[in-house]
């Protein structure tokens, strides 16, 4: 597979600090205050991510070396640049760099300066896919309304059957759960959820990403636009991971796992929910509680649009 570059990845040239190397992603703190992620493959994509596919193993390995050997100073960087000076029709490169101030031995495994050319990289943008899916769903078996009703029933059943990983989340009975119940009564709900809750990506941000993903399917456009603007204004109130997630969600491109849920939702009435059940199961396994939080938001989003007619 060719590498893919999410449409919200800032254009080259830039450098970003490596703040985490995980099994499926490398988190980079960009100067704009939101994370950019290098991810393994399409299934982990999001709008501010670059999927490395076949080159993931080697780059992640080298990045891990760089990150760990730079130690707690965390001065390992990824440079995203166009080689040469012209920058015209050239493939960008990502290069590992251990920053100045690193006082240890030269990193092993050749991490320093390890570079990967993103030849033939293709853009990643799920918004067209959503539009096509919506159009395809409209005339089929009662259209979008039937798909939303069937999806809601299935989603509720799934969430009722599965036990949350932790009772400390926004859906539990602890401090966050109680506060979430109170927040639902506020005028500015759900925008007030920005930055709320446990997790490196706060659970409220996951919930909102799910809500927006569903709200994209229908309902009054001005209401959706108002919510998007409200959330955008509040982005400084959340962390770098939450900002990256919400930037994509506001732009109509939630992470790949949530996009799959949305696409499957559109086919739900037609295929009997087989794709949706798989997508929900996959989503539930995402992160510590991110998958569940975003599905709960998605369910709320579907509920918010179910009484409206399709947009077109």
């Amino acid at each position: 597979m060719r590498p893919r570059i999410g449409f919200l990845v800032p254009p080259p040239d830039w450098s970003a600090l490596i703040v985490g190397v995980y099994e499926k992603a490398i988190s980079l703190l960009h100067a704009d205050g939101a994370l950019v992620s290098l991810v393994r493959g399409a299934e982990d994509m999001e709008a501010r991510a670059i999927a490395l596919d076949e080159s993931w193993d080697i780059f992640a390995w080298k990045a891990k070396q760089a990150f760990e050997e730079a130690g707690y100073k965390r001065q390992a960087y990824v440079d995203f640049r166009l080689p040469g000076s012209s920058g015209v029709n050239q493939a960008p490169c990502i290069t590992l760099r251990i920053g100045e101030g690193y006082g240890g031995a030269e990193p092993s495994h050749g991490a320093q300066g390890f570079s990967l050319a993103l030849d033939d990289a293709e853009p990643w943008d799920t918004r067209d896919e959503l539009r096509q899916g919506c159009r395809a769903a409209l005339p089929a078996d009662g259209g979008l309304a039937a798909a939303i009703a069937a999806s809601l029933a299935m989603l509720k059943a799934f969430l009722a059957q599965t036990i949350p990983e932790s009772s400390d989340g926004i859906g539990g009975g602890g401090s966050f759960g109680k506060a979430f119940t109170r927040l639902k009564e506020r005028q500015d709900f759900p925008a007030c959820l920005v930055g709320f809750g446990p997790g490196t990506t706060p659970a409220g941000d996951d919930w909102l990403a799910g809500f927006l993903a569903a709200a994209e399917l229908g309902g009054p456009l001005n209401r959706l636009a108002g919510l998007q603007a409200d959330i955008r204004q509040r982005l400084p109130s959340t962390g770098a991971a939450g900002r990256a997630l919400l930037l994509g969600a506001i732009a109509g491109a939630p992470p790949a796992y949530l996009s799959r849920v949305r696409q499957a939702c559109l086919r739900c009435a037609a295929d009997g929910g087989s794709a949706l059940s798989l997508a929900i199961e996959a989503a539930l396994g995402h992160g510590a509680s991110s998958g569940r939080d975003s599905l709960e938001g998605f369910q709320a989003g579907l509920e918010s649009i179910q009484d409206f007619s399709p947009r077109d």
Binding site: E165, S166, D168, S175, F176, C192, L193, V194, G195, F196, G197, P198, G199, T200, P202, G204, S237, T238, G239, G242, A288, S289
Partner: peptide, 25 residues
């Protein structure tokens, strides 16, 4: 973060424990 929060909540004498990012909310 979740495991850390869960671990300390079960400790003797601990009434409340929150492990989270210091966002405005």
């Amino acid at each position: 973060l979740m495991l850390a929060a869960r671990g300390i909540k079960g400790m003797k004498g601990v009434r409340e424990a929150v492990v989270a990012m210091a966002t405005a909310m």
